[in-house]
């Protein structure tokens, strides 16, 4: 019973504190200090959770290697990258501590080199794929199959052409149309979604704080 009640009670208290400190003041500003401390605890807990994550990465990939599962060679690359990057990170962290240091390491050279020369370009590559995916998604979305899709296509054409300087030279009225679409129908629809989502989030928060919504804890409604 306690196993189920304590997490709900802790969730209630941890959720209530930021709300109270937002609305009320207390002697010596204790409420705000308590809230700040709670946020620091969250960072510490996240650190431990990250350790759990690293253990999971090792478990899953070591099993893949030992079973010679499909793609086991990739698992070796992944673990090697994790160990090398982690080692360089630790070396840099220790070298910054007074009295500690490693022979041959001055500053963050190893870690930074891997980050700048390998990691960053890989990240940029993934991000740049978005351009191609946007094109293929737009191709599917803008097929005028019915009236609504036709309207969407027309609006998209106006907006895309309205920000193209060459087209604007020929059709100078287009930027005004673009502004109207973006600030009128588009903004209205977005605000509708935002208002609904904000109220939904507030309602969900209330359900969680009151312990009505417990499935995210892995508990059943009746528990």
């Amino acid at each position: 019973m306690l196993k189920k009640k304590i997490p709900v009670l802790l969730c209630f208290l941890a959720g209530l504190l930021p709300i109270i400190s937002f609305f009320f003041t207390s002697p010596g500003d204790g409420l705000r200090e308590a809230n700040d401390t709670l946020e620091q605890w969250l960072v510490v807990v996240s650190g431990f959770a990250l350790l759990l994550g690293v253990i999971s990465v090792f478990q899953v990939n070591l099993r893949k290697i030992s079973n010679r599962s499909k793609g086991w060679v990739n698992a070796i690359y992944l673990l090697a990258s994790l160990v090398i990057m982690g080692a360089f990170g630790l070396m840099d962290a220790f070298s910054e501590m007074p009295g500690w240091g490693w022979v041959g390491t001055s500053g963050n050279t190893g870690f930074n080199w891997i980050f700048d020369a390998i990691f960053q370009p890989l990240q940029s590559t993934m991000f740049s794929l978005l351009a191609f995916y946007v094109a293929s998604a737009a191709f599917r979305a803008f097929r005028a199959r019915n009236l609504e899709a036709g309207l969407l296509l027309a609006a998209a054409m106006v907006v895309m052409l309205g920000i193209n300087p060459y087209v604007v030279k020929v059709l100078p009225f287009l930027p005004e149309w673009t502004r109207w679409i973006m600030n009128g129908p588009n903004a209205a629809a977005q605000r509708g979604i935002i208002i609904g989502a904000a109220l939904g989030a507030a309602s969900m928060t209330l359900r969680i704080l009151l312990g009505i919504e417990r499935s995210w804890l892995g508990l059943q409604e009746g528990e």
Binding site: L50, L52, G53, V54, S56, V57, Q59, V60, R63, F119, L122, Q123, M126, F127
Partner: peptide
């Protein structure tokens, strides 16, 4: 536990 793996903390490495 392998059904719920942790992949990575980086956004695009996770995506990849």
């Amino acid at each position: 536990e392998e059904m719920v793996p942790y992949l990575t903390y980086d956004q695009f490495a996770f995506t990849a």
